[in-house]
Amino acid sequence: MTVLLVAHGTRNPHGVALIGDLAAAMRDRLAEHVAVSFVDVLGPSPSEALAGQGPDPVTVVPAFLGRGYHVRRDLPEYLGRRGVPPTRVTDSLGPSCEVIAALADRLHRAGRRAGDAVVLAAAGSSDPTSHQDVESVAAALALVLGAPVEVAFAAPSAKAPQYPAVSDAVARLRRRHARVSVASHLLAPGLFQTRLEHSGADVVAAPLGLHPLIVERACALARCTVPVAG
């Protein structure tokens, strides 16, 4: 089995390294070749990474926390190009039970206290499917924490005015709560995580990255024998 892990892409070297480390962790668990590609910012693209792979089918795992534009539009476009071998595309990393549990654990380890106001900080999108996904994650996380969870974006969109910037959400919640904790609905460090860390919150969780549950989810997707439609 050949596995291709597809991520967004970032200019931050730590973010790029994390995707490579995730692929390496999958490789160790699966005992299979796991390659890496990116849909934006840097290469190789999925079609470039798959060039010359031969006729055997490849399992493509989208390293995204939601089913937004990159998963539903960009990835199929790359995989449909001439010369790309047959692929089986799995579901994305999230939304999933593993992502919810990892978010709660990251918050706990960062120092979140009972009674803290909680913000679920996503990257940001104008895509309605992404909005549905992040809202479902916020609702599930609220059940786990036993506290309300508000959604905010690291990069707010004018097309989604219902989601404030993380710093604005923190400032507003600060007026009603003594402390504010931010759950990072991000996979890797980079510009967006830096914005969360500068949001003024008392607690900012680390990106989900190499959390054992995220590695577990990625490997489970790679092993899955039933394709999931994008």
Rank of each mutant, 00 (worst) to 15 (best):
V16C: 04
V16N: 00
V16D: 08
A17R: 10
A17I: 07
L18R: 08
I19N: 12
D21M: 07
D21G: 15
L22T: 01
A23I: 06
A23E: 06
A24S: 12
A25G: 05
A25L: 08
A25F: 02
R27Q: 13
D28L: 07
R29F: 01
R29Y: 05
L30A: 00
A31D: 10
A31V: 05
A31Q: 14
A31N: 11
E32A: 14
H33R: 15
H33Q: 15
V34W: 01
V34T: 02
A35W: 11
V36A: 01
S37E: 06
F38T: 01
F38I: 06
F38W: 13
F38E: 06
D40Y: 08
D40I: 03
D40E: 13
V41S: 01
L42E: 11
G43I: 06
P44N: 02
P44H: 04
S45E: 05
S45Q: 13
S45P: 04
P46I: 00
P46D: 00
S47Q: 15
S47Y: 07
E48H: 06
E48P: 06
A49S: 15
A49N: 03
L50M: 02
G52Y: 13
Q53S: 15
G54H: 07
G54V: 00
P55Q: 10
P55W: 04
P55G: 04
D56T: 14
D56G: 12
V58D: 03
T59G: 10
V61L: 09
V61H: 14
V61A: 12
P62W: 00
P62Y: 00
A63G: 13
A63P: 14
A63V: 11
F64D: 05
F64T: 03
G66T: 14
R67V: 09
G68W: 14
G68H: 06
H70N: 10
H70L: 09
V71S: 08
V71G: 05
V71F: 10
R72H: 02
R73M: 12
D74N: 08
D74V: 13
D74L: 09
L75G: 00
L75V: 04
